[in-house]
Amino acid sequence: MKPGSEAPGAPSAWSSGLFDCFDDCGLCCLTCWCPCITFGKVSEIVDRGSTSCGTGGALYSLLACFTGCHWIYSCTYRSKMRAQYALPDAPCCDCCVHYCCEPCALVQEYKELKARGYDPDIGWQLNVERGNGGAGTGGVNPPGMQEMGR
């Protein structure tokens, strides 16, 4: 089966552990110093392009600066991702994971998308054009992005 084309609802596990963030020093450092960038990349793929990386990252930054509750926003994306890929609510609920281990949670989500064949660095549109991860639709472009046939 092609990565990213798993059947919806089929049980699966996270491709990496919550604390496996340290095996990619570049991603780990980026996420520790600028979590808004990693979050923006994750949010664009999870939202299938309806939220751009810049928009997601900017909202995350504004919430972090003005409320300190950015983890509430980011935990909703973890929930969306878990629903899309039938991932377990582990090691604890999404809000607790993001509240206690925000950088590790963001790295785990990023790595999960990579393991499913996406490249969060290039954004949703290029993933669709390149067929990365089947663009999450079993190799078919999402509705509204399909080419017209004759």
Rank of each mutant, 00 (worst) to 15 (best):
M1H: 07
S5V: 03
E6C: 04
A7L: 14
P8S: 10
G9P: 11
G9T: 08
G9A: 04
A10T: 09
P11M: 03
A13S: 14
A13P: 04
W14S: 02
W14K: 04
S16N: 09
S16A: 13
S16P: 03
G17Q: 02
D20L: 04
F22A: 11
D23N: 15
D24A: 11
C25I: 08
C28M: 15
L30E: 14
W33E: 12
W33I: 12
P35V: 07
C36I: 03
C36E: 15
I37K: 08
T38C: 10
T38F: 07
K41C: 09
K41V: 00
V42W: 02
S43Y: 01
E44H: 06
E44F: 00
I45T: 05
I45G: 06
D47E: 13
D47N: 15
R48N: 06
G49M: 06
T51W: 11
S52A: 06
G54T: 08
G56T: 04
G57K: 09
A58W: 07
A58N: 05
A58P: 00
L59D: 01
Y60T: 07
Y60I: 04
L62C: 10
A64K: 14
C65V: 05
F66W: 12
G68H: 14
W71P: 11
I72K: 12
Y73M: 10
S74V: 05
S74Q: 05
C75F: 04
Y77C: 15
Y77G: 14
Y77I: 10
R78H: 13
K80H: 13
K80R: 15
M81Y: 11
A83W: 05
Y85G: 10
Y85A: 12
Y85H: 14
A86T: 02
L87A: 06
P88L: 03
P88V: 02
P88D: 02
D89Y: 05
P91W: 07
P91Q: 06
C95E: 11
C95V: 13
C95T: 14
C96F: 05
H98W: 01
C100M: 14
E102D: 14
P103E: 11
P103N: 14
C104F: 10
A105G: 07
Q108E: 08
E109Y: 02
K111V: 00
E112P: 05
K114P: 00
R116L: 01
R116G: 01
G117Q: 00
Y118H: 09
D119S: 06
W124F: 09
Q125M: 02
V128G: 00
R130A: 01
R130E: 00
G131W: 00
N132R: 05
N132C: 10
G133I: 02
G134N: 00
G134S: 01
A135M: 00
G136K: 04
T137Q: 10
T137K: 09
G138L: 09
V140I: 08
P142C: 08
P142K: 13
G144V: 03
Q146E: 11
Q146N: 02
E147G: 14
G149V: 11
R150W: 13
